[in-house]
Each structure stands twice: as C-alpha cells, then as structure tokens.
Design a protein around this nucleic acid. Structure first.
Lengths: 204, 204
DNA sequence: CTATACAAACCGACTGGTCGGTTTGCAAGA
DNA sequence: TCTTGCAAACCGACCAGTCGGTTTGTATAG
C-alpha cells in the first residue's frame, strides 16, 4: 500500500478508536494503550503518527470543528436565503445536528478538557466569530444571542447528560428557536431593548 | 477538641481543598494526594473521612446542590412574588449566581464527570423537577423552557471556557432573560405555539 | 528487471512516575 | 482500656512516552 495512504488510514483509525473509547468508556479511559488496542495498531505505530496524547486530542478537535464548519456552510448555501438571519439559523441547525450525532463533539471536548483545557481556545475563537456574525445581521442582537444561547444550552445539557427533556420536546424547542416568525413580534415591539440605557441593571 | 468537630473540620477542609484544586489546576489534577497536600492533612486522614475518591466527589456535588438549592429557596421567599413566573425567575437568578461564584458547581460537575458519569444522575433528577415547576407555572411553557435553556447555555459555556462573551454583555443578556415584561409580548401574541399541531416538524 | 540504499511506518518491551487505596503505628478523647 | 482521628510508609496497577529493532514502501543506478 502507498505510504501516504497507510499513514492516513492509521490516523483515521486512531481517531475513530478514540471516539469509540470516549463514548463507550468515558474520557478518563482514553489512554494511548487503549487507542492502540481499539484500533488494532501497536503503540509504537500510534505514537509515530501522534507523538503525544495531546496531538491526538488536537487532531480530534480539528476533525470535529471541520465537520460542523462544513455543515454550517452547506446550510448557508442551501437554506440561507430562506431566513432573515441566515447565520443564526445556520448555527441553530448545526447545533441541532450536533445533538443527533453520536455525541462526538462534546465528547472530544470533554476528553480535551480533562487532558489540557488550553486546547479549547480553538473552540472559543471559532464561536467568537459566529457570535460576531450573528450580531451583525440581527435587528435585535440581544435576542439573536439569546436564541443562540438557548440552542447551546440544549446541546450542552444533552451532551453532558444533564438534560431532563425528552427528544421530542427538545425537537419542538429547536423548531421554535429556528422559526424567525415566532420571534419577530418581540424584536419589533422591543427594538430598543438592545440599546444601552434600557437594561442597565448590571451591578457596579 | 471534640471528636465530631474534628471530623467535620477535616471534611470541610478536604472539600474546600478539592474545589481549590479543581479551579486552579483543572479536574485532571484532582487526586487524593493533592487534596491531602492542599488541605494540610495526611492521605490516611483523608481516606479515613472519605473512603474512596468517589465519596469525595459525591460529597462535593451534594454540597453544591445544597448551596444552590438554598439560594433558589431564598430567592423565591424574598423576590418570588415580584414575578409572574417565580420558579423561572428563581432558576435564572440561581444560574446567574453560579456564574459569579468561583466556578464551583460545574467544576465539581466536571470533576465528577471525568471520574464517574453516573454521579450526575443526582443533577439530572434535580433539574427534572425544576423543569416541571417551570412548565407548570407558565402560560407559554415552551418560551419559559427556552429562557431557562438560554440561561443554562450561558452558564455552561462560561464554565467550560467556551464563552466568547464579555462579562458585561452576559450580564445584559441575563437582565433581559429575567425580565418578564420583555417576553410578555411574545407569550401573548403567540400563545398557541406551545400547543401541538403547530410546530410538529420533528422528523419521523 | 534487479539490486542497492534509504526513508517511512510499525512493533512491543521497557522506564520513570503517578494514582487510588491499604497497612501500620500512635496519640488523644471517651 | 477501647475507640476514633490521624500520620507516614507502602503497594499494585496504570499510564505517557522512549527506544532498539523490524517490516514495508520508494527512488535510483546498473
């Protein structure tokens, strides 16, 4: 087999094995030996592809970020024009997708978090950009951010096993979150709620 | 000193040390040795009070649940009558409090999660009850749940280091989340959005 | 086409160190 | 004296990362 193909096959196998282990045994059991065992490769071969465990987690995160980034772009291209706030709609749709996936994202996040919290700076940077995009297109930026935060809350609660909501109920909540008409009344009747001087109750 | 007092003092010291370690070094560095070192007691003394590490985490979780449970009750007693939806207002206020605390709750959650995800069933049960309470008092249960989910999202993102929002901006969002008047227009203009047959877009 | 030389992928044993938990000893309260 | 709280040494399991050596692919010269 081709050398490049061998490498890529091994790397893919290692990352898939890592996701399997995290979802099946929890992030605490994600060890280099476990990845080697699960993927069928040797530990030496594994460390040849990923010199440290941190490198494995980094690759895992990048893979997930790329996957959902593509999903967002595809949504914007296909259904973007249908909404007055395409960025917000795309983010809500992407978050909804993340919940149906076999919990891969936040499981990777969780694994990364326990190993090295600094890895999360990638995620923070990415979500910072989406926040800017959402605010830029919104007539009522606060309301848009709150809809986004609600979607994040539903996803994070589910992924961390904290969610007491049934799948159907969560689906209905996502439906409503993504439906611009449901919120237009608020944005129109309270447009200046987003401006300063109105909601300045922050202490000190 | 009295024996019982000595025990309690040691247990408190151990839990406080655990919180210090989690917030300063991350949950991965929460070890029995580290707790013993941080609290000034010996490892033997520590394991005398908490036979296993899981027992430490369990006590940590219970301590936090109790703390925020008290906070919620106090809020209901003091400011409950001021809102049309006191349970929701209390939950939002409590979540806001959790964010200002030195990240204790979810840090404990995080520690527990990496060690033993089954411990989280306590949290899930507790939040199930609050969800029921919020739905029961709301004219528009979906909207109430979404406001609650948004607060959860803001808190979880902050605690896991994913939040790109500044403190001030988050504070304004919480202000608006907790202000019933900001949402009444929506609840009144779209009351039947909470009923079935309107938002049934859930696949299969 | 074959031989040679080098590079990349891979293997598995080993090392230094950490962690959860146990055992032993001792001092103070009951 | 007998129990309780605590200290310190200790144990076995586990883990990330290393290392010497092997196998497989690749390029070049004859």
């Amino acid at each position: 087999m081709d050398n490049a193909s061998r490498s890529e096959r091994s790397r893919k196998a290692a990352l898939q094995a890592a996701l399997t282990i995290i979802s099946r045994d929890g992030p605490a059991r994600l060890t280099l030996d476990a990845i080697a065992r699960e993927s069928g490769m040797s530990k030496g071969g594994l460390t040849h592809q990923f010199p440290t465990k941190e490198a494995v987690l980094k690759a895992l995160l990048e893979h997930q970020i790329e996957y959902f980034g593509d999903f967002t772009e595809r949504y914007l291209a296909e259904a973007g024009a249908a909404s007055a706030q395409p960025q917000l709609a795309a983010q809500i749709a992407t978050l909804r997708e993340a919940i149906t996936q076999p919990h891969s994202v936040a499981l990777a996040i969780l694994g990364a978090l326990t190993q090295d919290p600094s890895l999360l700076s990638q995620i923070r940077a990415a979500s910072g950009k989406t926040v800017d995009a959402i605010k830029a297109e919104a007539a009522d930026p606060q309301l848009a951010l709150l809809r986004w935060a609600a979607a994040q809350g539903l996803v994070l609660m589910s992924l961390f096993g904290l969610n007491p909501l049934a799948d159907q109920e969560r689906g209905q909540l996502f439906d409503r979150l993504g439906d611009d008409r449901q919120w237009s009344a608020l944005a129109e009747s309270n447009p200046r709620a987003a401006e300063p001087g109105r909601t300045r109750k922050v202490k000190s």
